[in-house]
């Protein structure tokens, strides 16, 4: 599935290429915290050259602002220019749009369906899946309830980190697995051990929300890697460049998969290696 999506994206870019080449470069300004990710991101945009963009130092001269992260997104909103948030909380984007901001965003995290698809592949026998949802989570309780798949999803709303432990101990035993959304408030480094240890003590595997969690002990996760975000940003830039309006907010279409082989093996999951899992997910790397 992921591979097909990327193929379609490339064909679409190829179709647009002649017209793009004839157009003037799009002046953009990137808001981001200083750091290696920012440099890499900006370099990747320059290298891509499709669409043609010009990174300008003065955000006022930019036609489109790109903000990486919630804080940068909030800062960029003050300029009242078209704004594309990258790896921004869904709630943050929604909040900004309510304020009539001319902005869209690439949400932090991946789509619930994608994450569940991976879970189904790795745990074919799983039926009951708990999904912890907090106020800042990428997924909302409504999204969980709207799920129409074969799995029985149950949203476990948690308002703060303090409730997390109790909620896990109360609820985990009823599920076959636990799914975690991207939530900077709930699932940071400080709570990973709590979540994971509690889950594993109750022999319940945890999926999501990102690569760091997989490294910390989550069984597997689809996550938006840096290249995924660059690719998704380029799609948004191309759309803006051609239509002079922002593309609708959403998760990355081609997330990356990460698996904790030790945990996967210990739970006897259907998993042999990362490549076979990618194939199964039909997601291009």
């Amino acid at each position: 599935m992921k591979r097909q999506g990327r193929l379609i994206l490339l064909l679409w870019l190829a179709w647009l290429a002649p017209s793009l080449c004839a157009q003037t470069p799009l002046p953009v300004h990137v808001f981001a915290e200083d750091g290696p990710f920012r440099d890499s991101f900006m370099q990747a945009l320059d290298v891509a050259a499709i669409p043609p963009i010009t990174q300008v130092a003065d955000p006022k001269q930019a036609e489109l602002l790109i903000a990486i992260g919630d804080q940068a997104f909030r800062r960029a909103q003050k300029l009242h220019k078209p704004l594309l948030g990258v790896y921004v909380s869904r709630s943050e984007v929604t909040l900004a749009q309510r304020k009539r901001c001319q902005c869209e965003g690439i949400w932090a995290g991946v789509a619930l369906h994608d994450q569940l698809a991976m879970l189904e592949i790795m745990m074919p026998l799983a039926r009951r899946v708990g999904v912890i949802v907090g106020p800042q989570s990428a997924w909302t309780p409504g999204m969980v309830q709207d799920y129409q798949g074969r799995l029985g999803l149950t949203a476990l709303p948690v308002s703060s980190v303090d409730e997390l432990g109790d909620r896990l101990r109360e609820s985990l035993a009823r599920f076959d697995a636990l799914l975690l959304p991207v939530d900077g408030q709930l699932f940071g480094p400080g709570t990973a051990k709590l979540v994971l240890l509690t889950s594993y003590r109750l022999r319940r595997p945890v999926f999501g929300p990102d690569r760091a969690y997989v490294q910390a002990g989550s069984a597997a996760s689809l996550y938006a890697s840096g290249s995924d975000l660059v690719a998704e940003t380029l799609v948004h830039l191309q759309f803006f460049h051609s239509s002079k309006r922002l593309r609708r907010s959403g998760f990355v279409h081609t997330p990356t998969v990460a698996v904790n082989e030790h945990v996967a093996s210990s739970f006897d999951m259907v998993f042999h290696d990362i490549d076979s899992l990618r194939e199964a997910l039909e997601v291009t790397p």
Binding site: L196, L197, A216, G217, N260, S266
Partner: peptide, 12 residues
């Protein structure tokens, strides 16, 4: 090291 072994967390 319970957590590390359970979670395969080699860093831990």
């Amino acid at each position: 090291s319970e957590y590390g072994v359970l979670a395969g967390n080699y860093d831990d």
